[in-house]
């Protein structure tokens, strides 16, 4: 690994600085527990959004079933950590949940990813509904009543760690040959296949990676909010995640992060008005699609903007 380049040090520095800043604000008491919940929600939503963006924004496979993978991670992590009540159990649960979501993602992806556009969207929606109905009927998940009293190990430190990890890994992936293969599929599937890319394979890989992180986010959710029920992971949740991705820009990780923070704040302020919040969401979706279909960031990332700002002469190839 080329760990000690100037750029990497800069990134590492800003990651630590952000962490320290929030930590100080919490310690001083400016951020009380109410805002801590907001921050936790934002972290979880960032993981969900960047992973969905990989599937929908970068690989071009429209999925409406992300909440399904999240629920798998959540339930697996909850069930394991309720039986092994240690930090180790929590981490094991997270990993197992993410892997379970990956396996389901692969199993579902292989047949459905042959479908295109809105057909795929509707198939993934159906799949997430099936997963929800299964959780509603299983004994181990306690049906519609859900699971209560899940040990709470996820805290701000863990959430931040996993959020950064998700962003870094997905960003790394996108700047690699398999990642470029995924982007090529979005651009032109027929041309991609003619350039030697096994399109089915890479769609499934993108789907699996997306499912892994959705599962991870689910596990963190279960542990932080210590309560689960199947209805949390319905169609509505999938759309919630989609709104973040679309608002930020399909194909921009930076956009997903910004949108997750923005919507997290909006949600906090509209907490007690569910209907109003959903109307705001709905209007946002329609207005963005009509007036700025590329979202806040388009497909630009933060370094594109910085480059523009400082007018760098030498174009660096990532």
């Amino acid at each position: 690994m080329r760990t000690l380049t100037k750029k990497n040090l800069l990134i590492l520095g800003s990651i630590l600085l952000t962490f320290a800043l929030v930590q100080v604000l919490v310690l001083v008491g400016i951020l009380d527990s109410f805002y801590e919940i907001t921050i936790a929600t934002i972290c979880i939503n960032i993981i969900l959004a960047v992973s969905l963006n990989l599937v929908t924004g970068f690989t071009g496979q429209f999925s409406l079933g992300h909440a399904g993978f999240m629920s798998i991670g959540a339930y697996v992590c909850a069930i394991i950590s309720m039986r092994i009540g240690t930090v180790g159990g929590f981490l094991l649960g997270l990993l197992a949940g993410a892997l379970a979501a990956t396996v389901v993602g692969i199993l579902i992806g292989i047949p459905t990813l042959r479908l295109k556009g809105d057909y795929l969207a509707i198939a993934t929606l159906g799949m997430a509904e099936i997963i929800r109905v299964v959780f509603l009927n299983l004994e181990i998940t306690n049906g519609a009543a859900g699971l209560n009293g899940i040990p709470r190990y996820a805290n701000w430190l863990w959430l931040y760690f996993f959020t950064v990890m998700a962003i870094v890994i997905i960003n790394n992936f996108l700047k690699s040959s398999p990642g470029r293969a995924c982007i090529a599929i979005r651009e032109d599937e027929i041309a991609a296949e003619s350039m030697g890319i096994n399109t089915t394979k890479y769609k499934v890989i993108a789907f699996a990676v997306g499912a892994f992180f959705a599962g991870l986010a689910g596990g963190l959710y279960a542990s932080y909010f210590y309560f689960l029920k199947p209805d949390l992971f319905g169609f509505m949740k999938s759309v919630d995640i989609l709104v973040i991705v679309v608002l930020g820009g399909l194909g921009s990780l930076t956009g997903s992060v910004i949108a997750a923070i923005l919507l997290g704040l909006i949600t906090t302020f509209l907490q007690s008005f569910t209907a109003v919040r959903m109307i705001v969401y709905a209007v946002l979706l329609v207005v963005i699609m009509i007036f700025r279909p590329q979202g806040l960031m388009g497909s630009k990332e933060i370094n594109d903007l910085l480059k523009f700002r400082f007018g760098k002469k030498e174009e660096k190839i990532e």
Partner: peptide, 18 residues
């Protein structure tokens, strides 16, 4: 088509919650 589909989802939510 994806943009229109997302708009349709938005419209759906708009009607429901209004």
């Amino acid at each position: 088509r994806i943009a229109v589909l997302i708009t349709a989802i938005g419209m759906s939510f708009f009607l429901e919650y209004t």
